[in-house]
Design a protein around this nucleic acid. Sequence first.
DNA 1: CGCCATATTGAAACTAGTCAACCGGAGTGG
DNA 2: CCACTCCGGTTGACTAGTTTCAATATGGCG
Lengths: 237, 237
Amino acid sequence: MDARHFRSEFSNAKFDSGWSLRFDGGCGGADRPDKGKVFSYHHRALILDEGDAASSVYEVLEGGVILFKLLPDGRRQIIEVLGVGDVFGLAPTAVSDVAAEALTEVRVAVYDKRSIDTDATLRDRLFARLRAQMCALHDHALLLGRKSAQERVATFIMRLVPGRGGYACAGPSKTESETRVDLAMTRQEIADYLGLTIETVSRAFSALRRSGVIAYDRQDNVQIASVCRLCRLTGSH
Amino acid sequence: MDARHFRSEFSNAKFDSGWSLRFDGGCGGADRPDKGKVFSYHHRALILDEGDAASSVYEVLEGGVILFKLLPDGRRQIIEVLGVGDVFGLAPTAVSDVAAEALTEVRVAVYDKRSIDTDATLRDRLFARLRAQMCALHDHALLLGRKSAQERVATFIMRLVPGRGGYACAGPSKTESETRVDLAMTRQEIADYLGLTIETVSRAFSALRRSGVIAYDRQDNVQIASVCRLCRLTGSH
DNA sequence: CGCCATATTGAAACTAGTCAACCGGAGTGG
DNA sequence: CCACTCCGGTTGACTAGTTTCAATATGGCG
């Protein structure tokens, strides 16, 4: 259990298919559990397993959550990385299609699935967020299907830059005040998210560092020396 | 323009993350354009481009639609393959995050995006379908990130078998009456969907044929000799 | 201090991509 | 009618990029 993770506040920017970590406080009004119950999970705790009865829907109030699927031989793919405001557990089937794990210390609001039909406010919020997450997933499918390892890692880092990295990226901005990003994921998690091996991810990070595009001491806290150059390496621009 | 395509009736089985082609008539009650306008598109027609103003939402009434994204250098990823009942154009941003193209002759219902907020019936239908499409996308992310070329192609063919191939696949059933499936996509489209090259897809099909798992004369109409064996090649079971 | 987990680096193996030739059916025009 | 072209698909040879396997480094924590 790592105190760092409770400080971190996932602030979502899914509307342009990225998410970001923020340290500058401000819970962003996510503390409205309505009629749902609030649960807390520790770092790495399993919130929901693939195949579990899908009787609840979840909304992230604080922290980060990963959704993933496993193949019988153990291969894992992290499908979505969720931040504050994101939702999961919306499979229309009787069982969940994915597993969910706490990426950090996390608080989630849990609602009975039936309340989707009875609570219009909740449903609208879930629907709106689902649409945003869908776009993020579209973008990620492009990454998984068509980008090189270098491009994947560059894209991954860019998505962590507030307001950047999404599909609708506004282009280079003068005021890149904070170019330091917190990865909040291990190399293994990044690899499973990007459809690569841990070694390939590590090599890509090392190559980016060697070329001077990024710098880091701790491997999970990256200083982006040139947002512009990194952006060009994503393959998207 | 190919008459074959109008006969084909995409009947969606997205609830378990597959879709299927049906020839046995029955529009399945999809002919209810409510307050929307119905448009028809020819085979290969562009319905919506990436970056277009996202002022409408679409519902497939008949035929098939592909959603795709392009990288600046021309790489293409087909993100979703949509059938009857599926929806698109739901990006919460001002512009569409994906392009949509008619895979067959297709009829779609087009609604003003604002009617999502005013028409509860429409919104519920869109929401329900979006949740199903989300699961399909989850499954596809697993395919793109973690499956081998052989597994991707096997999975692709399995998804075309009615009631099979989805994540919640019920396992081998005795009554595999119809094991003939219509691909309805060119090798290039399959490649762009599966994150492979046309040559790799072609080789995978040839290998499956050589091994006796499938057979075909026309390359877009495949007879599955052993659903069981094919299923085992998907990597999912 | 030393252990353990995570990360990095190197070398070899392998999968899928690239480039190029060829096939076969559909449509065209002499 | 048949040669010709076009287009999509197949196949082969070679290449490149990623994975695999293995060794080495680093950092947190008992």
